[in-house]
Computed example of a mutant assay.
Amino acid sequence: MPLPKYDLHCHTTASDGALAPTELVRRAAGVGVEVLAITDHDTVGGLDEAFDSAAAEGVRLLTGVELTASWGRQVVHLVGLGFDWKAAALQDYLRRLDALRFERAQRIAQKLQQRNLPDLLPAVLERSAGGQVGRPHFAAALVAANVCESEQQAFKRYLGPGKIGDVKMPWPTMKEALELLHQTGGVSVLAHPTKYRLTFTRLRTLLSEFADAGGVAVEVSYSGVKPEHQRELQKVARQLKLRLSAGSDFHRPEQVWVELGRFMPLASDEGHVLELLL
C-alpha cells in the first residue's frame, strides 16, 4: 500500500526553527502532511505542545529528535524516531548536549569579540527563547547588529566550516548516540548525508560504519540533495540493508524553496523506515 504523505525531518522554535510547535503542526496539516516527526536539534522540548496540536489537527505525530554526534573528527546528525521521549536515559543525555551547546555559544561569542564584534551572546540567548541555541541564532544576531547583510553572509564570513565561529566540541560519538536511541526504543536515521561535504568514498565508509553500529536508515531525500546523489544513496542503502527515510528539513517559512512534506519523490517506498513506525 502507498505510504501516507509524511515529513520526518523538520524544526521548531525549540531549536533553530522559526515556527512554534503548534504553528508548525498546523502548517503541516495545511499542506496535507498526515504523518509528521518534529526533529529539533538535541531537544524534545517542543513535543508536549506538538502532540496537543497534532491531536486537534488530525496529524499523526511521531516522536523525533536530531542528535549531534561525532564520527572521528566529522560532526554528523542522527535523526531518532519513535523513541520513548520521557525515558530518564534520554533526558540525561539531552542535558549533556544542552550543556555542550551553551558552552559552544559562549565560545563563539568570545571568538567573535576577538574580531572586534559586539558581544552577541545576550541577543542570541534571547532569540533562542529557552530552546537549544545554535549557529543560526548567531547568524540572525549578526544581521540584526548590522554586521552582515544576510544570514548566508554571516555563515560565509564568520560561522561556516573553517571560520572563526566554527567551534569544535566533544560531541558524543555516533556509536553512543545510536546506543541511546535504540535503548529508548527508537529508530536511527543518518540525516542529510551529502551535506557533510564528504567524498562519496568517505560517505560510503560513514554509511558502512553507521550500519555496523546498528544504524537503521538513511535520509535519501531532503532539501538540496541532487537527483544523482539520491540515486547513489538509495543504491548504497540497498547494499548495506539500510532503510530509507526522507524529510524537508524545514526551518522557516521565508525559505520558500523548502516546504513541509515537499522533497524529491523516492523511486520506491520499499524498505521505507515508516514500515517500522506505523
Rank of each mutant, 00 (worst) to 15 (best):
W171V: 00
L198D: 00
L266V: 09
D42N: 10
T173K: 04
E232A: 10
Q91C: 11
L244P: 00
H251G: 02
V147F: 04
P161K: 05
G160C: 03
S53L: 10
A55G: 15
C148R: 02
G247N: 12
R95S: 10
Q91L: 14
V76K: 09
Q113E: 10
Q234G: 14
T13C: 10
A237T: 09
P2D: 06
R238L: 07
G58A: 12
I108F: 10
A105E: 07
A237F: 05
F83D: 00
E228A: 07
V225W: 01
A69Y: 00
R60Q: 07
G224W: 15
L90S: 09
R204S: 03
V75S: 04
A140S: 08
L97V: 04
T12Q: 04
V167M: 07
W71D: 01
E209R: 14
G45H: 15
G134H: 07
G46W: 08
L67D: 00
Q91P: 01
G165N: 04
M174N: 01
V143F: 00
R104A: 11
H77E: 11
G224F: 09
A69S: 09
A89E: 15
D48A: 12
L242T: 05
R60W: 04
V218A: 04
L3R: 06
K111G: 03
G32M: 13
P227W: 14
E219P: 03
H192C: 02
L190Q: 00
G271Y: 03
K5T: 06
R27C: 15
G160F: 03
A267T: 14
G30Y: 06
V65R: 07
L61Q: 01
S268H: 12
G17R: 01
P21K: 13
D52K: 15
K86P: 00
H182M: 06
G17K: 02
E275Q: 13
R73M: 05
